[in-house]
Write a protein that binds this DNA or RNA. Structure first.
Lengths: 342, 342
DNA sequence: CTGAAAGCGCTTACAG
DNA sequence: CTGAAAGCGCTTACAG
């Protein structure tokens, strides 16, 4: 003997019964499609409000073949991670924009090779997918095979015919080089993140190309490669290279992301190096931490918010099968000068 | 004239047709419930593999009245945020554990008062909900009203009868006080985050209680209250209080979270204060940034991973309506000694 | 061990 | 403007 059904168990049928109309009519009132008399509409709407009826999106999805759910896959090499200082920001923007377009979003993190998360999303029949960071070709192929709309954000490689939202990393690398050389630096140490990742590769390229262009030589041993793009790696690398670095006569350093830069800085500070007086430092990304560090880090800001926003807006167009979707313009980075270079 | 249907359009009906059996049989093979001859099973399984059939979770959810989806609502006062250094970690753990139990998770961020995200989750018929951080009573009431299982993680207030996963914040405050006083500090400056939030309130309480207990007086003006728990707030507060602080003869400082501590530290470092030599600092949370800062920050570590793991495991029990679910034990924090106090 | 039938809660033509 | 009917892709008793 139920007193009264609660919102979630209530169906359109019950509303129809109470309103004295058919299910079809209730459905029409809710969707706003098709006509209905004012009288009926008011009655139905009032009942819905009163009983706290919540339409069952699962049932709706089944018939409309549209879930209004999208999946975000964040692939990281080592630890699956949503709280990442860079990717987390993109995720935030995605979440906000998705909500404004009435999409709900499944967030999944996964190791590089696994297809499990992608599989889950397929079974859940997401309307579309956003792939972030490292991507394996097999994951791309797999998803493509199912015909679900998707796009990539800051992926590790370009894939033909796939919409890819990225920063103008080469230009950013150039900006960093310009900033340091304009300040008079001629001997610059560089720590470059994994060159298998598009962004680290292009950032380094833009940086070295500019130096070459203005005729600043790069001393042998001035470029060091990090195998991961982490704080710990930056710290370790600077530590193990310390003797060589000290003897190199460097006056500045550039790292292809903030985390590496910060790690290296921490080691230098522990060796009582004064930053920027003795060594000026420039990073890349502009994670929150860059502004908080002491000294704060000069960096090349990537517009992560715009990345996330564009990702959702474009995915929505793909889902709605809009014609003439143009490839997004690469985002323009921005130099942010802070204490580490002034 | 379709060449061949792709995985997502394929239905159980098509598989049944090709295998020469009924839909029921295919369903049974997939679910593993009910008997089926080896012969039939092999044939069906092979077809599924070959055609890359993916069961439609939407249809399954409709009949089983179970979506295997859960929702995570992260409420923040100012900016909705998934990438938060503390809450993001909890989210990561939730994502990992959820995957291991075959749940997919909707992540939503929302402003404090809005019910919109909760509404969405209701319509999507999530099996359960996890509420993180600030919570308004009206949101709790609203969700309770719908009878969906839910629990809270590090909520701003206790709510009767609601499972709440929290840290032993009072004990953590005590640990911080003990650590500082054991090192001989007697004049300690304190910046306390919003006292409307349970954790900041208890951390302060544990801290001051310990001082009182061992007979260390708290000078007037030694406790300052921050209106938000951010880096910027810590920095600003220290800045505006600088004169008073400098004249106070303090040798140490405690903040009720790392962000505030770090902000205050940055200002002090800019004033050439040597940490820890002149001022020792202790924070709370152990966000990643605490270990990276220079000097690294001594803090009271909250086991965010365990929080996320417990949250999912408990929610799963609630969903499965297990009997005798016991309230989780409050998590024990841990003192992490770093450069800022040694 | 297997199949036919009903039903999950909606939407969408199609009549009226 | 409104209702009856079919159907979305599954699962679950119920017969056989």
């Amino acid at each position: 003997m139920q007193e009264r059904e609660c919102g979630m168990d209530l169906t359109i049928k019950e509303i129809a019964l109470r309103a004295g109309v058919s299910k079809s009519t209730v459905s029409r009132v809710i969707s706003g499609k098709g006509y209905s008399s004012l009288e009926v509409r008011d009655k139905v709407l009032q009942l819905i409000e009163e009983l706290q009826y919540k339409p069952n999106a699962v049932a709706r999805a089944m018939v409309s073949q549209r879930t209004y759910n999208i999946g975000v896959l964040i692939y990281r090499r080592h630890h699956p991670i949503a709280s990442h200082p860079f990717y987390g920001k993109i995720l935030d923007a995605i979440l906000m924009t998705a909500a404004s377009l009435n999409y709900s979003v499944f967030v999944t993190t996964d190791h590089e090779m696994s297809l499990r998360s992608a599989d889950f999303m397929m079974e859940k029949r997401v309307d579309g997918l956003i792939l972030i960071s490292r991507l394996q070709q097999n994951v791309i192929d797999y998803i493509t095979n199912f015909g679900v709309p998707y796009l990539m954000v800051n992926g590790s490689t370009e894939v033909d015919g796939v919409i890819h939202i990225v920063n103008q990393d080469e230009e950013g690398g150039r900006m960093a080089a310009e900033h340091l050389t304009d300040a008079g630096h001629r001997r610059i140490f560089v720590i470059a993140g994994p060159q298998t990742h598009r962004s680290h590769n292009l950032r380094l390229k833009g940086f070295t190309n500019y130096l070459a262009q203005i005729g600043v030589p790069i001393p042998p041993g001035a470029i060091r490669f990090a195998s991961t793009s982490t704080f710990g790696e930056g710290y370790e690398l600077m530590s193990s290279d310390w003797e060589q670095f000290s003897a190199g006569g460097y006056t500045a350093m550039f790292a292809t992301n903030d985390m590496i830069a910060l790690g290296a800085m921490k080691f230098m500070l522990e060796q009582s190096v004064r930053i920027p007086e003795q060594i000026a430092v420039v990073g890349f990304d502009d994670i929150d931490f860059a502004a908080m560090f002491s000294p704060s880090l000069t960096t090349i800001k990537v517009d992560t918010e715009e990345m996330g926003t564009q990702a959702i807006n474009l995915l929505d167009k793909l889902i709605r099968q809009e014609k003439n979707i143009e490839n997004p313009k690469q985002l323009m980075p921005k130099l942010i000068v802070r204490q580490s270079t002034k």
